[in-house]
Design a protein around this nucleic acid. Structure first.
Lengths: 289, 289
DNA sequence: CCCTGTCATACCCGGTAGGTATCACTGGGG
DNA sequence: CCCCAGTGATACCTACCGGGTATGACAGGG
């Protein structure tokens, strides 16, 4: 093999070891025995002429070069997986009928309902519309879905998602609101500031494991939006949401605009090198909404 | 091998065939015989379950899926090559002394002299400055250099370069000037329009093979900037350049601002997933110029 | 009709990826 | 103090498969 070419298999092996920092566990994860994995990593280090792992007594740690290869290798593996997935999607469906174009659109579950609905309706009305598969995703994994090819295009929301590495178009900007119990004194205000909501006596901000706002504070722990809505209705917590959250407010809720919260901008984003006509049509539709 | 994993070797093979559209030539380019290449492509098609090539009588053409794999595969191969190169750069230099950080900066040859000089000087004065290797590149290949890891960061110029897929920061905006023979009547004008320079009797725009402006027109053919400068001095042609080209004008040249030309914006751009401290320092220096 | 150029098939060989058994080393506990 | 548990490395073998050569099938053109 050419000395300057990394095989996908080698990258998979190295990333597994670098993530586990343990040859045995990495081998198990890869479904193979430990000795061939050790040997493969040694060969890899010899081939690229750089030592990647520090074999200390009792464990393994990454060298600087190893850290670089971990990050770059993940990106390369994502790109390879994306090539396989998108190719399969482009051709595999052909057997089930015409030149079926299908686009996978990743959206943050339960966000941008109205916008998404308008987009899907408008696009479906286009003459040569492709089939759109909506892929609900967790909070911040849209980028990952785009990178590894499970999705072709995504709705992303700054400042929560980073648009780094993708092409994107801005679709919508909205402010944020504080959602309070309907009877709360602050609910009478015309606007509030972030500082106000962060420090309401008796109303600690809820902690939502997958939402960053977890470690600090002593607020109640929640796991989905319904729990949160209920806790607010019971007068136990406050929450900050985008304007569009007004759509699902309860009678027991009150919404007050936040004057100093950074606005939430919704973008449609896609891999920079995409050349699909169906995608171009969807983007055109989206920007003309 | 897992059925859903593409090996680098398979991608290399397929991309070669897809580019040549000829098994024999592709095999020659890959330094191998034709039969194993045919077999490898067949196995690839079976593995991903999609037909990639249309074997017509007298030649080969790409299916839709094949076209997708050609583009996605190129990106994946670039990412893989980048992983190898950057890893080698991160670790290979360690043997020749301390924790030597080296950054490769791609710049369009002979552009942005002053800006580049200021940037290098300012960065060198930083306390923990890494070594910067300046990689002169052709007109539009900075993106390619960043993608395949030959460079870590680049100076790019919109609208010539596309920033798609990279992170970037704006550094400088400049207008454009028409460079005329000193004695020419139009040289007396305060400003000109693009239409003016495109159609000057007796002064056809020069044709520069690597600059897009090649096919049409009957202007003289040139191959580098010095030839162009000389032809202008001789009163044979006109050229449009960014403001900063004033730095190298001859006495026989006259520069007139163009009122309606889109401005040229210089950016510093880097791969979106970069995490290098040295790169962060360079970017910080650049944005504070 | 043969000849040429194309990709596919048939068959063989060597390298190497992967498995099993074992070693070398270190640190902790009885 | 020594033994044991747990780590990664080494030794050795096997089987698969990637690659080579020779040849076939098929279509077009002179």
């Amino acid at each position: 093999m050419a000395v300057d070419t990394l095989e996908t298999r080698e990258l998979r092996y190295f990333v597994a070891v670098a993530e586990e920092l343990h040859f045995g566990r990495a081998a198990e994860r890869l479904g193979m025995a430990q000795p061939p994995l050790s040997r493969a990593i040694q060969q890899l280090e010899r081939r690229i002429g750089v030592s990647l792992l520090e074999r200390n007594r009792r464990g393994v740690s990454l060298t600087d070069a190893g850290d670089v290869l971990l990050h770059e290798g993940r990106a390369a593996l994502d790109a390879t997986a994306a090539a396989a997935r998108r190719t399969r999607r482009a051709g595999g469906a052909d057997s089930s009928g015409g030149p079926r174009n299908r686009l996978v659109l990743a959206v943050k579950a339960a966000a941008s309902h109205e916008l998404l609905q308008k987009l899907l309706d408008a696009y479906a009305a286009e003459p040569d519309a492709a089939e759109i598969e909506v892929l609900p995703s967790g909070m911040c994994e849209q980028a990952e879905l785009l990178r590894d090819g499970r999705a072709d295009v995504a709705l992303m929301h700054t400042p929560f998602n980073s648009l780094a590495g993708f092409d994107s178009e801005e679709l919508m900007t909205e402010g944020r609101i504080a959602i309070l119990p309907a009877g709360h004194p602050l609910a009478a205000h015309k606007t509030l500031s972030m500082a106000d909501v962060g420090d309401i006596p008796g109303l600690p901000i809820a902690r939502w494991p997958s939402h960053g706002t977890y470690p600090p504070g002593q607020g109640p722990e929640i796991h989905d939006q319904t729990q949160l809505a209920q806790l607010i209705a019971l007068g136990r917590t406050v929450a900050v949401f985008p304007d569009s959250a007004r759509a699902w407010l309860w009678a027991e809720h009150a919404a007050v605009p936040l004057a100093d919260a950074s606005p939430i901008v919704t973008h449609i984003a896609w891999p920079a090198h995409s050349r699909s006509l169906a995608l171009a049509g969807l983007i055109r539709t989206a920007t003309q909404l």
